[in-house]
Structures are given as structure tokens and as C-alpha cells.
């Protein structure tokens, strides 16, 4: 059950990308996403593809994992392509059969949109593949810190995220245990149509939720007993530290963003 979850899957490697500060990686991703939507020509996309390829090679992550992360979105990507192919009008007619028509502009937009989606997913999944969840939440917390002044609870959000990540495997294990226990009592999780299947999940979900609340209560008590009092006055063992290469990468990606903005 655990192997099915690709979102947030982290693969440990000793690479340049892995060693970068998570804050820098998040910023680079944001820059990259902006350029994806700025660029509007095939030569530009060729450049983006090259950029992704270089990052993948630097990260020492197998291309297989990147493709795996795109797979769940195949439906959305092909749907976008087909809708644009047949719906967007403009330019010469390329292909025609009875009422179906593909025009030049449709083909162009369809390809652009699906390429954008593929770039977006593959690049953001590179972030989670090369950054441990803990580093990611730390990075987000410190990036959101300036917004605390306008009332955004940065520390609390990061704490919630890391606790959620911590309890995913625990709750999955528990779900499996409850499922077995209910099956032993004659519960049927597999047969019937979709509605019946959804209904049969109730005896699984109710105890799972009740237990989750009990866990939350215990955890809050344990955190309080260990002097937890929110983000104020709290220090970190592995504090995030920017080094030279982080600044270089940030500067380079900034140059990249500006040049894309100017030339395209």
C-alpha cells in the first residue's frame, strides 16, 4: 500500500541538487513555472526541455521516476490535447472528416498546453524527489516567515505538515489493521457497485477517525510535556544555512527569469 504513493516520495542520493538549500529549490521552481507560462514558441520549449534534462542529470534521479510521476496525469494531458485539437479554431485546416476538423491553431495550442503540463509536473516532482519532507517543510516555513506579519501562521502550517507526514505511515498501518479486523467480522470491502463499495468503507473510516482524534490528543499532551509553546523562542538543530552554491544557483535562475522575460 505504501509503494503506491508517489506524491512526496523522497529518493536519497548524493547529488548537487540534493545538497541545495530547500528554499533555493522552491524559488527556482517558482521562477521556472513563471517562464513555462511566459514562453510561447517551440524553440523556447526545446530550451525548457533541455533545462529539465540537465537538472535531472544533476540530481542523479532515474528518468523512470520522472515518467512515473507524470503517469497519473496522462488522462488530463490527453484530454487537454484533444479538446484543443478539435475546439480551437484558426489557421489552415490540417485534417477533416465529416464534422470533425483540426486546424493549425488547435494543433499548436494543444501541443503547447500538454507540454506545459508535462514540464510543470516533472519539474515539481523533481523537488519532492530530491528534498526530504522535513527539509521541504523547513524551507516553506522560512520562506513564509515574512508573511507572519500579515497574520499567516507560517510555523503552525509547517508543524502541521510535518506531523501529517509523520503520521501517514502510522495511519495507513492502522487502516490495514482495522480492515483485517472488520473482514474477520464478515465485512465485505470488494464486491458491489461504487456506491456499495463507498458505503462499506464506513466501518473502516469511523474507527480510524476516532483513533486519529485520540492520537492527536495524546500527541498534544506529549508536545506540551516537552515544553512546546509554538514557534516563538524555538531554535533548530539543523538550521537552514545558505552557502555559496545556493547563492550562485539563485543568481543564475534570476538571470534566466529576466532573460526569458526580455527575449520572449
Amino acid at each position: 500500500m505504501l509503494d503506491d504513493i508517489i506524491i512526496g516520495q523522497y529518493i536519497e542520493r548524493d547529488s548537487f541538487i540534493h545538497s541545495l538549500d530547500p528554499r533555493i529549490k522552491i524559488l527556482v521552481i517558482i521562477f521556472f513555472i513563471i517562464t513555462i507560462f511566459l514562453i510561447n514558441a517551440f524553440t523556447g520549449y526545446l530550451f525548457l526541455a533541455f533545462f529539465i534534462l540537465v537538472t535531472v542529470l544533476l540530481s542523479k534521479i532515474k528518468v523512470k521516476y520522472i515518467i512515473k510521476s507524470i503517469r497519473p496525469l496522462i488522462f488530463i494531458i490527453s484530454f487537454t490535447l484533444i479538446v484543443h485539437l478539435f475546439m480551437t479554431r484558426g489557421g489552415q485546416i490540417i485534417w477533416e472528416w465529416r464534422f470533425l476538423k483540426i486546424e493549425e491553431e488547435g494543433l499548436r495550442m494543444g501541443l503547447f498546453m500538454s507540454l506545459r503540463l508535462i514540464f510543470l509536473v516533472s519539474y515539481t516532482s523533481l523537488l519532492t524527489l530530491t528534498t526530504s519532507p522535513l527539509a521541504l517543510t523547513d524551507g516553506l516555513e522560512s520562506l513564509l516567515k515574512p508573511f507572519e506579519k500579515i497574520g499567516l501562521p507560517a510555523h503552525e502550517l509547517a508543524m502541521m505538515m510535518s506531523i501529517a507526514l509523520r503520521f501517514i505511515p502510522t495511519l495507513l498501518e492502522e487502516a490495514q489493521k482495522i480492515m483485517k479486523a472488520q473482514k474477520a467480522r464478515g465485512a465485505d470491502f470488494e464486491s458491489g457497485n461504487l456506491i456499495n463499495k463507498a458505503k462499506s468503507l464506513i466501518p473502516l473510516l469511523v474507527p480510524l477517525f476516532v483513533n486519529a482524534f485520540r492520537r492527536a490528543d495524546d500527541l498534544a499532551l506529549a508536545m506540551e510535556a516537552r515544553c512546546y509553546r509554538g514557534g516563538e523562542g524555538r531554535s533548530r538543530m539543523n538550521a537552514l544555512l545558505l552557502v555559496n552554491k545556493d547563492y550562485i544557483v539563485l543568481a543564475l535562475s534570476f538571470v534566466y527569469l529576466i532573460s526569458v522575460g526580455i527575449f520572449l
Binding site: L134, S162, I163, R166, D218, R226
Partner: peptide
């Protein structure tokens, strides 16, 4: 229900960090 972090040493560090 009393371990907070998803790495052992991070969890042990939780108290002193507070």
C-alpha cells in the same frame, strides 16, 4: 503517539529545540 518527527534524531531534538 508521542513521537513528533519522522526522523529519530529530529524527534529527540524536539525538546531542546523548544
Amino acid at each position: 503517539n508521542q513521537l513528533i518527527a519522522n526522523i529519530v534524531e529530529e524527534d529527540v531534538a524536539f525538546g531542546p529545540e523548544n
